[in-house]
Amino acid sequence: MSRIAYVNGQYVRHADAAVHVEDRGYQFADGVYEVCEVWQGNIVDVPRHLDRLDRSLKELRIDWPMARSAVQFVLRQVVRRNRVVNGLVYIQVTRGVARRDHFFPSDDVAPSIVVTARSADPKAAQAQAEKGIAVVSYPENRWPRVDIKTVALLPNVLAKQNAKENGGKEAWYVDKDGNVTEGGSTNAWIVTKAGVLVTRPAESGILRGITRQAILELVAREGLTFEERPFSLAEAYDAKEAFVTAATTIAMPVTRIDDRIVGNGHPGTVATRLREMFHTATDLQAV
């Protein structure tokens, strides 16, 4: 079956999907995006993702390309037309197509929107979670507004490629003070030897992850001991367990950081438990 994409008002074959060469997302990375998990025929946490999309758009002063309800309809249609039961759906909005100029284009330039979806194998993801992943630390080198989910991901690409070339699945950014900020495409967590769950505050310096929010609700619901504070790379090396969270990974155990084995080298019980319970703390919208 051919994959289907939605591009500026039309459902087209994925192989034929295209945007104009002067789309500002291509020319300037002048756009934002969201990724939602699709789980057992449901799109996960659509309201939260669209709330964050709204915030990102407002921060960059980009208008919605269509009504919010219409975006929800398109998300469901793209998932349905691609017959995705488990996987992800991606939405990207840019400032639109205009002559290349650093200044914003005139108000009559409409924002561009692209939505795609693809399937993923939940068994493969679970097998990875039962083994755990390695992360590789990388100096923080991004602009300060990482709280906006923009398509300007070149620093993330370089960090994640460095991780791959050094045997890792994910990168962990480390700031000038030696503290872990977040992953290249995930939020970062540790569990101390005293059993305290720790993650960095989301007021600044990291993206306020939607999966992160759901995990925090689970933590509160289950009465886990928790601290929202910075943690250093050295503290992470010494942690009892570690994991990362994102729509594409849920809660994924980390068993190695750089050349250090985390805990006993196996996925920890906290990460495993949160992963198992995750969808009980999410909003599920049937396709």
Rank of each mutant, 00 (worst) to 15 (best):
R208N: 12
S112A: 07
T280L: 14
A271I: 08
W189F: 14
A188G: 01
E170A: 04
A5H: 03
T272G: 11
A188Y: 01
G132I: 05
V74P: 04
E130L: 14
A239K: 00
A281K: 08
R80W: 05
R273E: 12
F243N: 00
Q77P: 06
S69I: 12
T94C: 04
N179Y: 11
A70C: 07
S2K: 09
D238F: 08
L158W: 03
A246I: 09
N141Q: 14
D121P: 10
V146S: 07
L233A: 04
I257N: 04
F103S: 15
V35M: 12
A271H: 07
Q213F: 09
G223N: 06
P155E: 03
V196M: 04
G31N: 06
S2A: 10
T255E: 02
P111A: 04
E203P: 00
Y138D: 08
R52Y: 08
A163F: 05
M66C: 13
N8E: 11
L207H: 03
T245R: 01
H49Q: 13
V71W: 02
V19R: 09
Y11W: 12
V38P: 04
G168N: 02
M66H: 02
N264V: 13
G184V: 03
G132Y: 01
F28L: 13
L50Y: 07
F226P: 00
E228L: 10
E227G: 07
W64T: 02
R76E: 09
F28A: 10
R83L: 09
E203R: 05
V84E: 01
A239C: 11
T192Y: 03
P144L: 12
R212G: 01
L216Q: 07
A247V: 05
V12M: 06
V7K: 02
P105Y: 07
T181M: 03
V198A: 00
A152W: 00
K58D: 14
R76Q: 13
V114I: 15
R208D: 09
R68H: 11
R68L: 11
E228R: 11
Q128K: 14
H14I: 07
T248N: 12
A134F: 08
V71F: 09
K160E: 06
T199F: 03
